[in-house]
Design a protein around this nucleic acid. Structure first.
Length: 856
RNA sequence: GCGGGCGUGGUGGAAUUGGUAGACACGCGAGGUUUAGGUCCUCGUGCCGCAAGGCGUGGGGGUUCGAGUCCCUCCGCCCGCACCA
């Protein structure tokens, strides 16, 4: 008997697929297209098991859709710009480009054995000049369309590394790498005008029905639309130019409960006051220092400082309120100034109690006595009726909001305004390994775009990465160019783009990766949108939101059809791959290959020393709980790894990698092979005999049900259930022994079906089985099986019989049996009679085909 | 604080969306094949109980002939966002 030899089979079939160019996507207007895409990887230098899970999911979908007759596009590339390359350059004195391309080569080699149905002819890296040239072209078109602009903005500046840091790179106010105290610096930065689409990006979320609700909610929160009123207060005692104070509120109804105004420490008024008052300056500095880590923010007490300035209440003649500077006001939101209504906002209440400010309730819950309703330490934020509010008294909150807004608008004191949390996207990075921003600064002409025929503005190869700061800026010659307009000496922009830009349109580029324009209209029209996008939930907000913005901006500038403004039709976010953790007696982390199972459960070191087993958590180098895909593939073959990673856990949830599970997967493949090898099947294409016995008929039914159910499971991304069906089908096969013609026929049919159903998951194995079954054409790409409807339904059905909701018997009845017949059969059961007692049934519920419930 | 999700055997997880709870897999147990171990094959395996039977989907309550599924309430866990006015 021949054993299944993955070492021989897997390379053989990959070669066959390659030679047949099965995965090469070509536009074919006659066929429906299907674009499946996994989030492309950063070329860190190693494929890890999380990548495997991601790509195998996409591969199952791609192979299934191919079998379903779709013209499938399944490309792969590299998100290749970014800091790690510069870090590697600094640490190891290699060029970022060399490091990146070497990593890509290694990772591609590691991916090859996985048997993924990828169209490698479309591969690109975002650091290829050919790619970023087109990105620069897009930038110029966006600039012309008014979607890009430059302004001053505050950044996290690391004075040692001389670079801008992203928020997540600032740890406790210090640079993550240098440890230096991070400064807030104002720099002129390039921005994409994503807020222009804020409303659009928000409302279109409703249409993203095939996205996880969680991601949709996260995007909605991120955009953070609020409706409110912006209006001004007349000030007294303020410096010149601050005669009015603009505030924004979503609760204009609480205006009669206002007891103070407060501005951010970064508000122009605070800055102005700080200039001449060292104490205020010191207070503002203190405010700015808090608010880096979440911990501090949560526990930070409310702090404020009275400016001595007062404002007149717009609706209460003669009433004035103090103006404070407070640490809980954000300059970036609204106007950076608020009025505080302590009774109905917890922050304002905490603040008012601390500094002895007035607390006037103006909304009372409907069951409260208005005259005596008071607020102690908890602000009242629920629904109710207005009190203590003059003309608003008795109104609902909604009516009062409208009434105040109308009055203020009529008086010309304010206007209704929609506000967004979303801010424009700052893309300037003072780094080398990114896409250069294609503009030139000329003393005479100002900031002018580079000419398109001069693209790409290519990164210089000879850079000095060894010291901090922007290598492009200190390059001796690179930035000195002639002005594209007047030809005078001018300077290139030395900022490069945020790497999120690179990944915001790569999916569109895959439709025409070698085009000399960013996209090719016909290809984009045919392939877009991505029908199924698969990746990690960590990209739920930024990457996906930026991509949605880019698609709109590209449509507006003619690079994508209007139908492609939502580029991802369906999104699936997969869970992580986890593994148990191990520590020795000294607390040192141990890798899975450094432990072995102990007698009576648990683990010991290879020397037999005790091991503490920790919870299964995301694989990480520091905890050493990693398994290398290449080791698994070497030992068991790619199919085993693919099979196991898709079994057991639902794909959206975390999966735990266990050696036992991987071995079980391997055992199963060998078991199917052995069953086949022992089966002694009739030749391919044999006709069905006239008579087939019950046993083989049962197998036929099981096989056709498996086709139906597994198809639904794949469509629903329930890969773990799909795999369970295949275990069941294999079990059904093992119950039938070859012998007569009927059994032979049923077995051959079952093996052919199992090969076809397994092929998206374990494509090499399935091809080998298919070929062994006597087929000389490739299984990959062959039509997906259709179940025979006649075999899906039994003419008999097994029905449970309950008495008072508890199962007491089972009856087998004809499908066509009437309710009366079923009831009679059910009541005749011993188990039923026993539990009915003396009085007999009071009521019998018969749900045909489902259940019988007898009420005693 | 807000938003989202989850809670089912020793473990990962199924349950046709209101109709037999625990599919499938891991683990464990018994038996068989094998020189032995592993592989492989068969059977068993929610809990309590000798059994009859009872109990059982985080706790409590409700709707229903019938609830893991729907409603109320409480508890616990995970993820995301956050002094957002």
């Amino acid at each position: 008997m021949t054993r299944y030899d993955h070492r021989a089979a897997e390379p053989k079939w990959r070669k066959a697929w390659d030679e047949a160019e099965l995965f090469r996507a070509r536009v074919d207007p006659e066929k429906p297209k299907y674009y499946v895409l996994e989030m492309f990887p950063y070329p860190s230098g190693r494929i890890h098991i999380g990548h495997v899970r991601n790509y195998v999911m996409g591969d199952v979908v791609a192979r299934y859709k191919m079998a379903r007759g779709f013209n499938v596009l399944h490309p792969m590339g590299w998100d290749a710009f970014g800091m790690p390359a510069e870090n590697a350059a600094m640490e190891r004195n290699v060029h970022p480009g060399d490091w990146t391309y070497q990593n890509i080569a290694v990772m591609k080699e590691q991916m090859a054995p996985m048997g993924l149905s990828l169209d490698w002819s479309r591969e690109f890296a975002t650091c290829d000049p050919e790619y970023y040239a087109q990105q620069q072209a897009l930038f110029l078109d966006f600039l012309e369309a008014g979607l890009v602009y430059r302004r001053k903005s505050v950044v996290n500046w690391d004075p040692v590394d001389m670079t801008v840091l992203a928020n997540e790179q600032v740890i406790d106010g210090k640079g993550w790498r240098s440890g230096a105290q991070v400064e807030r610096r104002e720099l002129v930065q390039w921005f994409f005008k994503i807020t222009e689409f804020a409303d659009e990006l928000l409302s279109a979320i409703d249409g993203l029905e095939k996205w996880p609700d969680k991601v949709r909610a996260m995007q909605r929160n991120w955009i953070g639309r609020s409706e409110g009123l912006q209006f001004s207060w007349k000030t007294a005692g303020a410096p010149e130019g601050f005669e009015a104070l603009e505030v924004y509120t979503t609760r204009p109804d609480t205006l009669y409960g206002a007891s103070f105004c407060a501005v951010s420490a970064d508000h122009p008024l605070a800055v102005k006051l700080a200039a001449s008052d060292p104490e205020i300056a010191a207070f503002c500095d203190e405010c700015r220092r808090t608010g880096t880590s979440e911990e501090v923010i949560q526990t930070a007490p409310k702090l404020g400082r009275d400016t001595g300035i007062t404002v007149d209440h717009p609706l209460i003649p003669g009433k004035t309120l103090p103006v404070w500077i407070a640490n809980f006001i954000l300059m970036d939101y609204g106007t950076g100034a608020i009025f505080g209504c302590p009774a109905h906002d917890q922050r304002d209440l905490d603040f008012a109690r601390k500094y002895g400010l007035e607390v006037v309730p103006v909304v009372a819950p409907s069951d409260a006595v208005a005259a005596s309703f008071a607020v102690a330490d908890e602000a009242y934020v629920g629904p109710g009726r207005l009190i203590n509010s003059d003309f608003l008294d008795g109104m609902s909150i909604e009516d009062a909001k409208a009434a105040v807004a109308e009055r203020m608008e009529a008086a010309g004191q304010g206007e209704r305004k929609v506000n967004y949390r979303l801010r424009d996207w700052g893309v300037s990075r003072q780094r080398y390994w990114g896409c250069p921003i294609p503009v030139v600064h000329c003393d005479a002409c100002g900031t002018v775009p580079e000419k398109k025929e001069n693209l790409p503005v290519e990164l210089p190869r000879d850079v000095d990465i060894s010291q901090p700061g922007n290598p492009l800026d200190r390059h001796p010659t690179w930035k000195h160019v002639a002005c594209p307009v007047c030809a005078a000496d001018a300077r290139r922009e030395t900022d490069t783009m945020d790497t999120f830009v690179d990944s915001s349109w790569y999916f569109a580029r895959f439709t025409a990766p070698r085009a000399t324009t960013p996209t090719e209209p016909d290809d984009a029209a045919y392939w877009m949108n991505v029908d199924q996008y698969i990746g990690g939930v960590e990209h739920a907000i930024l990457h996906l939101l930026y991509s949605r913005f880019f698609a709109r901006a590209m449509a507006r500038t003619g690079h994508l059809p209007d139908t492609a403004i939502e580029p991802f039709e369906a999104l699936f976010t997969q869970g992580m791959v986890c593994h148990e953790t191990y520590q020795d007696a000294a607390g040192k982390w141990l890798a899975p290959e450094e432990v072995k199972s102990a007698e009576g459960g648990g683990w010991v070191t290879l020397d037999g020393a005790p091991v503490t087993t920790g919870p299964s958590i995301k694989m990480s180098k520091s905890k050493k709980n990693v398994v290398a895909p290449e080791d698994i593939i070497e030992k068991f073959g790619a199919d085993t790894a693919r099979w196991f990673i898709m079994s057991d856990s639902p794909p959206e949830r975390d999966v735990e990698w266990t050696a036992a599970g991987a071995e079980a997967a391997n055992r199963f493949l060998n078991r199917v092979w052995r069953l086949y090898a022992e089966a002694d099947l009739p030749p391919a294409g044999s006709d069905a005999p006239a008579e087939i016995a019950d046993g083989p008929m049962g197998l036929r039914r099981a096989a056709h049900r498996a086709v139906r159910d597994l198809t639904g499971d794949i469509e629903g991304f329930a890969f773990n259930k799909a795999i369970a069906r295949l275990y069941e089908l294999a079990a059904a096969i093992s119950q039938v022994k070859a012998g007569d013609a009927g059994a032979g026929f049923a077995l051959r049919e079952a093996f052919e079906l199992i090969a076809r159903l397994m092929s998206p998951f374990v494509p090499h194995f399935a091809e080998e089985l298919w070929a062994s079954l006597g087929h000389d054409t490739l299984l990959t790409g062959a039509a997906w099986p259709e179940p025979d409807p006649a075999l899906l339904e039994d003419d008999q059905v097994l029905m449970p019989v309950q008495v008072n909701g508890k199962k007491r018997a089972e009856i087998r009845v004809a499908k066509t049996a009437s309710k009366e017949e079923i009831e009679a059969l059910a009541l005749a059961e011993d188990g039923v009679r026993k539990h009915l007692g003396e009085n007999g049934p009071r009521k019998v519920i018969v749900v045909p085909g489902r259940i019988v419930n007898v009420v005693a």
